[in-house]
Amino acid sequence: MEKTGEDSYRVSLAVAGFAPENIEVTVKDNALLVAGHLAEEAKGEFLHRGIATRAFQRRFVLAEHMVVDGAELNNGLLNVSLRRVIPESAKPRRIEIVTAKSAPQTVEAPALPHAA
């Protein structure tokens, strides 16, 4: 996984020999699943086969508040774009402190740790 911005990330997979119709990208229960399968080709005798044609499946557990923006296949490399979207209710907020002897003051709440 590569961090491409403050709240954006990219998962890259080498999928040489696979076309977009042979790859399935799904998200379910905070997991990103990338699967690939090729239709059966004509059987022949190969002395060497440089590109593997077997089916594959990769599973990535996504942190809370991660959404998949899209996927792009370019020159045998599949790039899946992710973005962290933190809801307003989970963001730190300022709390006003009022005392009987002084004017209102504000104190900034400490930043909450967040998963990447």
Rank of each mutant, 00 (worst) to 15 (best):
S81E: 09
A109P: 01
A71I: 02
R49Y: 04
V80F: 01
E45A: 07
P20M: 05
H37K: 15
T53S: 15
L32W: 12
N22H: 11
L82N: 01
N75C: 05
E64Q: 12
L112V: 14
R10Y: 05
L62C: 03
Q57H: 07
F56Y: 08
R59N: 03
D69G: 05
I51N: 01
S89Q: 13
V80C: 01
A35G: 09
L73D: 02
F18G: 06
S12T: 15
L33K: 12
V68Y: 03
V68D: 01
A115M: 07
A14C: 05
H48N: 11
A19Q: 10
F56W: 07
G36V: 12
A109R: 06
K3Q: 15
L77T: 15
G50V: 05
H114N: 06
R83K: 15
H114Q: 10
G44Y: 04
Y9G: 01
A39R: 06
F56K: 06
K3D: 03
L82V: 04
R49V: 13
M1H: 04
A14M: 04
V25M: 07
P113C: 11
H114F: 11
E2D: 12
V107Q: 07
A90I: 03
S12A: 14
Q105S: 10
A31N: 14
T99F: 02
T53A: 14
V67C: 00
A35V: 05
A19D: 11
F46Y: 15
K43P: 01
F46E: 08
K43V: 14
V34F: 11
H37Y: 12
K3H: 04
E72P: 00
D7W: 03
E2T: 10
Y9I: 00
L82S: 03
A71N: 06
Q105T: 12
S89G: 01
L47C: 04
A116R: 10
R10S: 13
E45Q: 06
L112P: 01
R59K: 15
H37S: 15
H65V: 00
A14L: 07
N79M: 08
L32N: 05
L112R: 13
P92C: 06
